[in-house]
Amino acid sequence: MFHGSMVALVTPMRADGSVDDDSLRGLVEFHVTNGTDAIVAVGTTGEASTLDYDEHCGLIRRVVELAAGRIPVIAGTGSNSTVEAIELTRCAMEAGADACLLVTPYYVKPTQEGLYRHFRAVAEAVPIAQILYNVPGRTAVDMSNDTVARLADISNIVGIKDATGNLERGKELIDRCGDRMDIYSGDDATAMELILMGAKGDISVTANVAPRAMHEMCAAALRGDRVAAHAINADLELLHKNLFVEANPIPVKWALHEMGLIPPGIRLPLTELSSQHHDTVRQAMKRAGVL
């Protein structure tokens, strides 16, 4: 349904933590101009967990308005509360989002049956296209491939963002479910290989700062051109690594501020990138040609 480089968009904030609409407008234009294939608004990288309900829905509506049909918008609407996930997903549908991205319910540690019932309940309540999101390193819950295979039979569950970084596991998902849903990488460091194996794209942190290169790398991998994809990815590998020297989105927001695209704001409990890591991130940006 969605293919290529899909940016996990940051939420630009002023120094006081308020959302900066002017910078948000600039970021959307930046991605439209540079060939990003879809925008994922208010996901992990967008600091969804620090936003209240009204801010969350308001940001989805605003990104849809700014995109103006020029680029698909996928709204992050996951929650550890099934009721809240349904409400956010309904809000996104009413705002005009093209699809929703739903993370596994964090902190509460549901069983596999609980995960299945959670996602089924959201899908049955709201008819918008939905993409599952498995990121056990952040949520303390890991959705098994068996559970994903069960959910793949639900018509409006159209994909999964696999952020495990486990290529063997990702390939199994492609083999078992690829005829019923699209598999996306959620791990920039392994995205090229997973796409070459049959994934349909990458929901990317790196694309925030190197959108054109990520679009071109994903496009090359999608057409099976390993040589071209590898050549592009070689200059991005340091970004894939160094944008995670501290918890995402701390480094990527600092990088975008260095590029003059957003103010330095970030919300507690996240803090600005430690000075000891500035040169590390700058080195990666220079290697990628974005600084």
Results as ranks from 00 to 15, higher is better:
residue 86 I to F: 15
residue 166 N to D: 11
residue 193 E to R: 12
residue 187 D to A: 07
residue 248 N to L: 05
residue 88 L to I: 04
residue 78 G to T: 04
residue 245 V to H: 10
residue 89 T to S: 15
residue 122 V to N: 12
residue 174 I to E: 12
residue 189 A to R: 05
residue 28 V to N: 04
residue 46 G to R: 01
residue 280 T to E: 10
residue 271 T to S: 09
residue 118 H to S: 09
residue 226 R to K: 12
residue 241 K to F: 05
residue 190 T to E: 06
residue 216 E to V: 02
residue 71 I to S: 12
residue 193 E to S: 10
residue 97 A to V: 05
residue 27 L to P: 00
residue 260 G to L: 06
residue 229 A to F: 00
residue 155 S to W: 04
residue 265 G to F: 02
residue 65 E to D: 15
residue 51 L to V: 08
residue 117 R to I: 03
residue 26 G to P: 03
residue 110 P to S: 06
residue 120 R to K: 15
residue 227 V to Y: 03
residue 31 H to F: 10
residue 64 V to C: 10
residue 57 C to A: 13
residue 65 E to H: 05
residue 142 D to Q: 14
residue 61 R to D: 14
residue 134 N to W: 01
residue 45 T to L: 12
residue 43 G to M: 11
residue 246 E to G: 07
residue 280 T to V: 15
residue 99 A to E: 02
residue 12 P to K: 12
residue 24 L to Q: 05
residue 245 V to M: 01
residue 135 V to R: 10
residue 83 V to N: 14
residue 63 V to N: 13
residue 205 V to T: 08
residue 197 M to K: 13
residue 160 I to W: 12
residue 290 V to K: 07
residue 129 A to Q: 13
residue 187 D to W: 02
residue 37 D to N: 14
residue 247 A to Q: 13
residue 15 A to R: 09
residue 105 P to F: 05
residue 110 P to G: 05
residue 1 M to H: 11
residue 155 S to N: 15
residue 226 R to D: 11
residue 27 L to H: 07
residue 124 E to I: 03
residue 41 A to I: 06
residue 205 V to R: 08
residue 113 E to P: 00
residue 196 L to R: 10
residue 179 D to C: 08
residue 30 F to V: 02
residue 13 M to D: 13
residue 11 T to K: 02
residue 66 L to N: 08
residue 165 G to W: 00
residue 155 S to R: 10
residue 225 D to M: 08
residue 3 H to P: 01
residue 146 D to F: 07
residue 3 H to E: 15
residue 204 S to V: 08
residue 267 R to K: 04
residue 264 P to H: 04
residue 55 E to P: 02
residue 248 N to W: 00
residue 159 G to S: 04
residue 235 D to F: 02
residue 39 I to Q: 04
residue 100 C to K: 03
residue 130 Q to V: 04
residue 41 A to E: 00
residue 121 A to D: 10
residue 173 L to S: 01
residue 266 I to A: 06
residue 255 A to C: 02
residue 217 M to H: 07
residue 227 V to L: 05
residue 149 A to I: 03
residue 83 V to S: 14
residue 171 K to H: 07
residue 275 S to R: 13
residue 50 T to N: 03
residue 61 R to I: 01
residue 89 T to R: 11
residue 279 D to L: 11
residue 15 A to T: 04
residue 83 V to T: 13
residue 182 D to P: 01
residue 259 M to N: 10
residue 161 K to E: 06
residue 40 V to I: 11
residue 34 N to E: 09
residue 41 A to T: 15
residue 96 G to N: 09
residue 35 G to T: 00
residue 211 P to A: 06
residue 53 Y to E: 14
residue 99 A to N: 05
residue 134 N to E: 01
residue 170 G to F: 07
residue 182 D to Q: 08
residue 111 T to Y: 09
residue 200 K to C: 03
residue 249 P to S: 13
residue 197 M to A: 12
residue 140 A to F: 02
residue 158 V to Y: 00
residue 167 L to E: 10
residue 158 V to D: 00
